[in-house]
């Protein structure tokens, strides 16, 4: 199978209304199946809305919850990526994305980087995930998932690429901010640059699904799309407008891109590991900050 039919579900969830959002997921899954898609991707926290704050206790669900299971069950005929606030058996609350296929959970990614600065307050409510784990069994082979801020750290796609990802799925609740004279919101422009560089660097197609809608004045920009392993944005959904967008990914392009520009092949992970260990040891010893060769405070002359 050389082509992957994907539906990017750029929806506008209702804050805290799990039932309404779940119904909408099921409705769109049915529609995506009718379109012949193999995979439908919903945005970060599509089942709950983004700024759940103190609603967290009410809207968190364990994986075994019947509502979550209903989505996993729906994956018998189409693969589904969905996201919600996951409650663990130890009552940690994670921002999680699930990849479901053939009625089973293929993978759960728990958001590692929880932005807590400026307009963001995620670490106040959520526990961070601890790994970037790739998984197999998708129509594109081995894949990896990132949740929003995860993708703003360049090390995240690096780890997924080393883990063998042939396909990256990035879901987001990214706000529209920094409107300038440019064609894109400032936040959106950065996303477009980042994902283009990642896709081209690792020869890996990336599907990006960002929500739309407004929560107390904060608009989410949408602009979902896909980037080819050559670093081209193949498709960009409209900003601000809700909708299901069908795209087709050429899976053979990975092969061509990785032969033409074999950056991933030439990575030196053991060297990186050695260098990281050395750097971390030195940081520990000198308690220095990031400035290279900086001396501890007391030793400055």
């Amino acid at each position: 199978m050389d082509r992957l039919q994907v539906v990017l579900a750029q929806l506008s969830p209702r804050l805290g209304d799990f039932e309404w959002n779940l119904d909408k997921h099921h409705e769109w899954i049915r529609e995506a199946r009718a379109r012949g898609a193999q995979l439908i991707i919903f945005p970060e926290l599509g089942l709950t809305g983004y700024q759940v704050q103190d609603m967290t206790l009410d809207i968190a669900r364990p994986l075994i919850h019947p509502q979550i299971q209903s989505l996993i069950e729906a994956s018998r005929e189409i693969d589904i990526v969905f996201s919600f606030v996951e409650e663990t058996s130890h009552h940690l609350f994670h921002v999680s994305a699930v990849y479901a296929s053939e009625g089973k959970v293929r993978a759960v990614h728990r958001k590692v980087y929880l932005p807590t600065y400026g307009m963001f307050d995620e670490r106040r409510y959520f526990a961070p995930g601890t790994r970037f784990q790739t998984f197999s069994g998708t129509p594109a082979g081995t894949a990896g998932m990132l949740l929003c801020e995860d993708a703003w750290h360049v090390t995240s796609p690096y780890l997924l690429a080393l883990g063998g990802a042939n396909f990256m799925i990035v879901t987001a609740s990214s706000p529209a901010r920094d409107v300038t004279d440019a064609h894109y919101f400032g936040s959106q422009r950065f996303w477009r640059e980042l994902l283009r560089v990642y896709a081209q660097t690792y020869g890996c197609p990336i599907a990006f699904v960002n929500r739309v809608g407004v929560e107390d004045g904060i608009s989410f920009f949408g602009g979902s799309g896909a980037v080819s392993p050559e670093g081209d944005w193949l498709f960009t959904a409209p900003t601000v407008e809700e909708g299901m967008f069908s795209i087709q990914l050429d899976l053979r392009s990975v092969r061509r891109a990785r032969f033409s520009t074999p950056i991933l092949r030439d990575e030196r992970p053991l060297l990186v590991q050695r260098e990281l260990e050395r750097i971390l040891r030195q940081r520990e010893e000198t308690q220095c900050d990031w400035a290279p060769n900086s001396q501890p405070e007391g030793e400055r002359t």
Binding site: A176, V179, T180, D181, H183, V214, G217, S219, T239, V240
Partner: peptide, 19 residues
């Protein structure tokens, strides 16, 4: 401080409708 007018108007119209 110059704004992309189409983008800004789309956002503000959507904001009013949505809220």
């Amino acid at each position: 401080l110059r704004l992309n007018e189409d983008l800004t108007l789309a956002l503000l119209e959507r904001f009013i409708r949505d809220e």
